[in-house]
Design a protein around this nucleic acid. Structure first.
Lengths: 274, 274
DNA sequence: TATTACTGTATCGCTCAGAGATACACAATG
DNA sequence: CATTGTGTATCTCTGAGCGATACAGTAATA
């Protein structure tokens, strides 16, 4: 158990399969570009440096093509050898791109001060996540005092179907779209309390619709409680969500809700207007 | 003035030029892969959504090729249209890769708790940066209470020649390598106090060598003071640096140094052993 | 209202970039 | 010792994709 929720719900249907379809029908689709990104994506599956053969297998390419792509990406700084020369790892140039992505995201810039205010009010972990099909991807994370790396990492993704933020997003979608997301999700039980039943999840979404927020207890991790609310754009479609996360050892569910919900709702509504 | 230091010191010598060289001599170098990454890199130069033509010009490609690459990257989620449909911006899939890069970096994982300890001791901003040729790239950032986005962004890069962390790195390199880095740097004066003279910079490096840390006053931003120290790997080569940054309105240089230096030195030495 | 200059999008031949088979030196296994 | 991994290198043949060209829509000019 690595503690990372990522890597479990991949969005690539066996990688190469999707590629074939695109090539057939789409004359503008470049195989070479897709292959390049598939090599970079191969590291999603890994928890240690990867060998050329491993990358090839994971990306669904042959060793020769992989060799050339890896070689090129290495020249460019997007891949590098592990410090102990045990394999390849993502290179430092990746950092440039996340910087650009966040810099050019016009939700993030105004969000940070408001998120900091929220954290000061509630004094618990505050995260902002962006929607990506079936996932929520953390884009800004404000960890409390004592934390470990993974709680700080931008880019961690969690499923929609079993998170408070996810339920809050579902509550702002038409019912058929919401159900479609739930159905397509690979619903696994992260804890004994994880919701996997479609109707039970829709129930949570409707609570979110009524209240403007929704609470999730022990959906991803035992002992964890989270409250989430969605951020809507001008067309009232959900584009992001804010989550406050705490430990059940510190709060009862009711106390937590009463303490946090008002500030949270105020924050997301301010972000929606921005 | 955007407040971002990035985008000033690019590492690509006109982009296309470097590509030509590589293709000539290197049979394993894939033009298509390089072109793909050049399209993604085009956003380094931008501070707003980019049009196809802008991307093409910045990446040094023609519009047709750019169209196909952009189209493909968009299908894959690495690019997306701006919410207001004013142009292209980096897509959400980028976040996956930074997550992988940080997750697989075996310096970061053990570093975070130590950096948090350090920040608790000094109660000022703490950053960990990785070396990349002439640059330092922020990989972990612990902002103090009140901050804005850019102070939190992983992937921001700053020059080596005019930062405390950079001087600390230089102090652990052979003199010729250090001077080479300085000479190749595009030395601009960010403030009136920015050091641009090679010997003056080497002087700072030698101070870092003696003390194990070095202080930089108003090198990048007026009113800012920073203290940096290098992290060495097993072969005693500098691979990263830790910086503590504060405001001159809160500290005199001496007070700051006395308060922070011991904790900082202890932190980097612990990280070096890890 | 025309005009000019942008957008994004689409089509189509020709050709060289690159796919993929194959080989090799080396290291770490059994 | 054989086996299976690693990274690296070389070659031929072909179809992926280069880049020219065109077009509809929009925005800002005159």
């Amino acid at each position: 158990m690595t503690g990372f929720v990522n890597r479990s719900h991949h969005h690539s249907e066996s990688g190469a399969r999707k590629l074939d379809d695109a090539i057939e029908n789409d004359p503008l689709f470049l195989r070479a570009t897709a292959r390049t990104m598939m090599v970079l994506s191969a590291f999603h599956e890994a928890d240690r440096p990867m060998s050329l053969t491993e990358i090839a297998r994971t990306a669904g390419l042959d060793r020769s093509s992989t060799q050339r792509i890896v070689h090129t990406l290495r020249q460019l700084g997007y891949l590098q050898r592990d410090p102990h020369d045990r394999g390849y790892i993502p290179g430092i140039r990746i950092y440039d791109h996340i910087f650009d992505a966040m810099r050019l995201n016009d939700l993030l810039q105004p969000a940070v001060p408001l998120l900091l205010d929220l954290r000061r009010n509630v004094n618990e972990r505050v995260d902002l996540s962006l929607i990506d099909d079936l996932r929520l991807v953390y884009a800004a994370r404000l960890p409390p005092k004592r934390e470990v790396l993974h709680a700080m990492l931008v880019g961690l993704s969690v499923p929609i179907y079993c998170t408070s933020a996810g339920w809050a997003m579902l509550s702002h979608l038409p019912e058929d779209q919401a159900r479609d997301i739930i159905r397509r999700s690979d619903r696994r039980s992260y804890t004994s309390r994880t919701l996997v039943d479609e109707d039970a999840i829709m129930e949570k979404a409707s609570m979110a619709a009524q209240q403007g927020y929704v609470v999730a207890e022990e959906q991803l991790l035992p002992g964890e409680i989270a409250i989430g609310a969605a951020i809507l754009n001008a067309e009232r479609r959900p584009i992001a969500a804010v989550t406050v996360t705490a430990l059940l050892s510190d709060w009862t569910a009711e106390d937590f809700t009463h303490a946090v919900a008002p500030s949270l709702v105020q924050t997301v509504s301010a972000l929606g207007r921005a």
